[in-house]
């Protein structure tokens, strides 16, 4: 895909407050789905607004995405993580609309619990196991950008290192060996856990995920799932703005 000619303002610059506009002059609409137990929905709504989009809360019982051009499945503990993280939410009525939206090429960003849902409904490959340490891990991690040629990743630079927080107990990505090979061959890994120098392996992998997978894209590149929380890092006041470029790209893709 082509990169827009506007150039990268880079992490740390935040956004100007003037977002991308639709041809009609209105702001681009991004749905944030709220499940019982979501707890990052307000952060996601605020991040979309800060990136210049119109954030639209959509209840999980909704049959559609309120005409939005992009959708966020936010983090949290939908249905208390009962059965498996994301398993119950995967069967919420709104997920049929999310599937249709994705099948039509619409942008989907699943964050943390939202990533787990995307795995459960099969839009992304693999499944999450409990972290290797068996602990809930809530801290900053470093992430190496592996793809920058897709609309949702266009403001990132391949090989650059981001710093974003994680907060999960089931983030240990697993897939059968043949699936892992397919994922790697397809370039489906968007983000990998790394150290501050961008090196993979050892203690830099917080949860034991195979090949340090922290984020995946589908083959078409319109569905991105990631365990780290970009919506929590959109301003220096919140400890950094490495997440702003992802949210901005999402709004632009709406």
């Amino acid at each position: 895909m082509n990169r827009p000619g506007t150039g990268d303002r880079g992490p740390g610059t935040g956004n100007s407050g003037r977002g991308p506009e639709t041809p009609a002059g209105g702001r681009k609409r991004v749905a944030v789905v709220i499940f019982p137990g979501s707890n990052c929905d307000r952060d996601a709504l605020a991040a979309v607004e800060a990136a210049g989009g119109e954030a639209v809360p959509v209840w999980h019982q909704s049959a559609d995405l309120a005409g939005c051009g992009a959708v966020v499945l936010p983090g949290g503990f939908s249905y208390g993580d009962y059965l498996r993280a994301g398993a119950m939410a995967a069967h919420s009525p709104v997920m049929a609309a999310v599937r249709r939206h994705a099948a039509g090429g619409g942008a989907v960003l699943g964050i943390c619990n939202g990533f787990q849902m995307l795995l459960e409904i099969g839009l992304l490959p693999g499944a999450m196991l409990m972290n290797r340490t068996l602990r809930f891990i809530c801290r900053d991690v470093h992430l190496r950008v592996e793809r920058d040629d897709l609309p949702l990743l266009k403001h990132l630079r391949r090989g650059h290192v981001l710093r974003l927080p994680i907060a999960h107990k089931e983030g240990n990505w697993f897939a059968a060996p043949d699936v892992v090979r397919q994922v790697e061959a397809a370039g489906a890994v968007a983000l990998r856990y790394c150290n501050e120098r961008g090196e993979i392996g050892g203690e830099a992998n917080p949860n034991g995920a195979i090949n340090a997978v922290a984020g995946l894209v589908n083959r078409e590149g319109n569905v991105l799932g990631m365990m780290p929380h970009p919506e929590r890092r959109i301003s220096a006041l919140l400890g950094g703005s490495d997440g702003a470029a992802l949210i901005r790209a999402l709004v632009e893709a709406a």
């Binding site: 059965l83 498996r84 398993a87 119950m88 995967a90 069967h91 795995l119 459960e120 693999g126 499944a127 196991l129 697993f174 897939a175 059968a176």
Partner: peptide
């Protein structure tokens, strides 16, 4: 459909 995840 839901009770088990065939991946794992």
């Amino acid at each position: 459909e839901v009770l088990a995840n065939p991946v794992i």
